[in-house]
Every structure is written in structure tokens, then in C-alpha cells.
Amino acid sequence: MDSVKRAFDSDLAWSFRHSPVAILSATVALLLILAAVCAPLIAPYNPFDPASLNLMNGFSRPMEPNAFTGDSFLLGTDDQGRDVLSTILYGMRISLFVGFAAVVFAMIIGVVAGLVAAYAGGRVDAIIMRIADVQLTFPSILVAMLIFGIAKGFTPVHLRDQMAIWVLIISIGLSDWVQFARVVRGAALVEKSKEYVEAAILIGRGPIAIIFRHILPNVLSPVLVIATISLALAIIAEATLSFLGVGAPPTRPSLGTLIRIGQGYLFSGEWWILLFPSLTLLLLALSVNLLGDWLRDALNPKLGD
């Protein structure tokens, strides 16, 4: 109870309560995440169960009864008669899962690399940061595409569709670790010179214990900010890759795949197949982005360059 009260009285909570943008974007983001998590419970149909699909329902307009079957769909159906609302809910699950997993993956690599670079110094530091520099030369979406292409080459053909999601997570994660590494290294260098680290060395704690038990907790707040901003970027990166056809396969579509499918009906007048997934992606990316911006201002750590 005490800790709840303390959290409520903290600077962060105060700043949150006084920022309408933060409250609104947090609400939208939470609602979307909740909807995605509960997709199997709240989606009207299971779009991936062939038994529940009726091709006759194809291209139903939103909120109008289908001419053949009389079924009505809130957001219409796509070419195969899949309910657009349900595909969006399930698609958002995949988008969010890939986004979260990629950020966690990038965070683990980046934080460990940054801590090791800062603590070890010397040659180890030089090598890690040189690799980071080289990777920073290239835009991360390009790095992600390349890693995706290479990983796809290594996956046996019959497993490619199943593995696509994991390959996506790895490629987006690997393309994004540098931010974490640079910021953590900077923060850890400052911590390293403080007295508590010296004290820990003096009482004979090993380097691993010092890095992870003592330094890590003190560099977490910039990591949190970067993770939130990275989540928005990762969701957009996933959507972009899937839109380009090098991401989630049509059998397990993410929001990007749905937009890719919808783009094909732009000229024939079935606008709902494209519009609703696009709006969902927009809402998701924008709300997480604004939340990240607010968090950065609220915690106000000096974020690298």
C-alpha cells in the first residue's frame, strides 16, 4: 500500500496527471493493446478458421447486409469474406507482439553491450562501439531488410512462413540495439566513477555482480525512454517490412500485411479493406510515439546525440 502511494506521489505520476496528451495517448495505447490481447474473446469471427469463412461474404460493405447472405459486418469484409474488424484485431496482436519482442531483444543486446563496453573499457569498448558506429551509418530499416533477407536464406523453404515472425523480431531487434548501447554506455561510464562502485570493488564483488546488480539499476530510466520510442519505431518498421512483402506472411497477417492486401483494392472502390487497418496502425504508432515523447520530457535524461 505504501509503495502504491509513493508511486502515485512521484514526479512522474504528477507530470502524467498534468499532461492531457500523455493521458489521452496512454488511454488509446492501453485500449489498443487490451483489444489485441483479448482478440480471441472480442473478435466477432476467427479470421484464420477456414470453417467460419464464407466466400459469398466477400467484399461486404461496412455495416450493410451482404447481398447474397444477408450477413452484416461492422467494418466490412475482404476478398475472402474475412471480417475486417477481426483481421485487424488479430493483425494488431502480431504487430504488437513483434514490436514488443523486437524491442526487448534490442534492449537486452544493447544494454549488455553498453554495460560491458563501459565497464571493460579499452579494446572491448573500442570494438563494440566501432561496430555500433558502422551500423549507425546505415538506416535501421535497411539493416532490418538485409538481416531479414539473409535469415530467410538460411531458413528451409517449407518453414519460411512459420518462421517469418521470429525472423522479423530478430531483424528489427538487431537493427535497433545501437541506440540502447550508446545511451547505456554513456550513463554507465558516469556511474562507474562513483564511490559506490569503488566500494563494491573493495569489498570484493565480481565484475558481473557490479555491472548487473549495482550499475544496471542506475541506468534504467534512459533505457525506459528509449524502449518506448523504439516500440513506436519497431511497430512502424514491422508494418513497413510486412507492407513491402518481406515480413509477416498473408497466412498470419500483421497490420502491415493487411495494408498491403488492402492497397490492391484502392482503385476498385473497396476502400474499407485499406482504410481501417491504416487508421489502426496510425493510432497505435502515434499514441506510443506521443507517450515516448512525454516520457522523455518527464524523465529528462540527457539522451546521447
Binding site: F148, L244, G245, Q263
Partner: peptide
């Protein structure tokens, strides 16, 4: 680098579209 995305949206016959095709077909 970002022309890859634009070229795919507009089916612009440049190297970006070529690259995406090569990733899809694993044309090393």
C-alpha cells in the same frame, strides 16, 4: 535507402524495387 519503400508503393522501376524482389526470392 528509403527509396526502397517509395519505389514499392509506386512500382517505380529502380534499384529499391529490385532489392525487395531479390529479398523475396532470396536472389543472393
Amino acid at each position: 535507402a528509403f527509396s526502397i519503400i517509395t519505389e514499392t508503393v509506386f512500382q517505380w522501376p529502380g534499384v529499391g524495387l529490385l532489392f525487395i524482389d531479390s529479398v523475396q526470392f532470396v536472389d543472393i
